[in-house]
Amino acid sequence: MTTTKRLVLAVYAPSLMGGDDRTLAAVHGMERALPGLRLDWEVTEKRQLALLPQRDEWLAKAAAQGKFPFVCNGNEGFPVMLSGLTTPASQAPGGQPLLDVHAKLPLDAAVITAAAELLERIAEGARAFWGHATPDGAALDIAYQIAPTLEGPPSPRRGLPPLKLIQHIRSPEIPYYLGWLNYWSEAAARAIGFPDPARDTELLSRSRRTATGGWIVQLTEAPLDLDDPAHLEALKRTYERFPEIGGRAAP
């Protein structure tokens, strides 16, 4: 039996405020990026799927309360889900509360083709500082870069650099880590020093600007697979290029 690979997507944005339209913008953006997708189901407290006949009104009401509830497509054969949660100021970079928006999708050919647009539309809909889209296998390895151990500091796999805990990053514009596809807002790109035409020729060949002046930066042509030595080297090389990511730069 084979396990279905998934694309894990996350963006980090300012926390929701009353009357905020970013929840709807992120949901609508995800639907536009993947034709035929409709996120109009919820999971009830009894863990059952329930159709949302007035989905947009329901989401707007939740957003007014500072919430981004879980929505999905109701298709157990091709499950797509999107939700958000708040990181309180005490646990967030720069002491500012954040909205963390997370999505999961099956990693099939259609999703791979649409992945950059999915990330861009969700990130810009949420007006995110930064975000990423990464296959779940690589995302697990990357998670070890920030996971504390019993001894204290993280102990990453595959020779990847250890990264600071989220609350120790000095500002929300600085990405905590890298992924296969990276969304860097204009502020995030400025904070990490991207782009430098003299140093970023290879990255720029797989990057594009967004409508708001941000960047979609793709580390590898194929979805990131850290069992591939070339992919692992590309990830390490990009960390070396941007020491601000993960709070590794000297103060």
Rank of each mutant, 00 (worst) to 15 (best):
R47F: 09
D136E: 12
T86K: 11
P97F: 08
E244M: 14
P223F: 07
A211M: 04
E124N: 05
A26L: 00
T4K: 00
R248K: 07
A133N: 05
L235N: 05
A116C: 12
S15P: 02
P243K: 05
S207D: 08
L82A: 12
P195T: 15
Y144Q: 04
V111R: 02
L7K: 04
V43C: 11
G179P: 05
A110P: 04
G29F: 03
H102M: 09
A62C: 10
R38Q: 02
L160P: 11
G74P: 03
P162E: 12
P93L: 00
M17V: 14
M30R: 02
T3K: 07
A198K: 01
Y183R: 10
L39H: 03
F194A: 01
L52N: 00
T149G: 11
T2D: 06
A50H: 13
L160R: 14
S205H: 04
P251F: 06
D40K: 07
K5T: 08
L82V: 10
W130L: 09
F129I: 05
I216M: 07
G95W: 03
L105A: 00
R209G: 01
D56A: 06
F68Q: 11
P154M: 01
I245P: 15
D227T: 03
V8G: 15
D56S: 07
A250F: 08
K236A: 02
A13N: 09
R32Q: 05
G77S: 11
L165V: 13
E57C: 08
E233K: 10
K5F: 05
T210R: 13
L39M: 03
V111C: 11
P154A: 01
A25V: 04
L178N: 01
P148W: 00
R199N: 11
D228L: 03
P97E: 07
I169P: 08
P148E: 00
L203N: 04
G131C: 12
R241D: 06
T149E: 08
M81T: 13
L203D: 04
R190F: 15
R22K: 09
G66S: 12
I169A: 15
E233T: 13
P153C: 10
T87D: 10
G19P: 02
K46V: 14
K5E: 05
V43M: 13
R190C: 13
H168A: 07
G193Y: 12
A189I: 07
K67T: 15
E45C: 01
R157C: 14
A25N: 03
S90Y: 04
A143P: 02
D225A: 15
L34F: 03
D225L: 10
L99M: 01
P197T: 10
Q167R: 10
E186R: 12
R241T: 09
P148H: 01
A103D: 03
L82E: 04
T2R: 09
T212V: 11
E221N: 12
R190V: 14
D196T: 00
A60Y: 00
W184F: 14
M30F: 04
L165A: 11
I112K: 12
H28M: 02
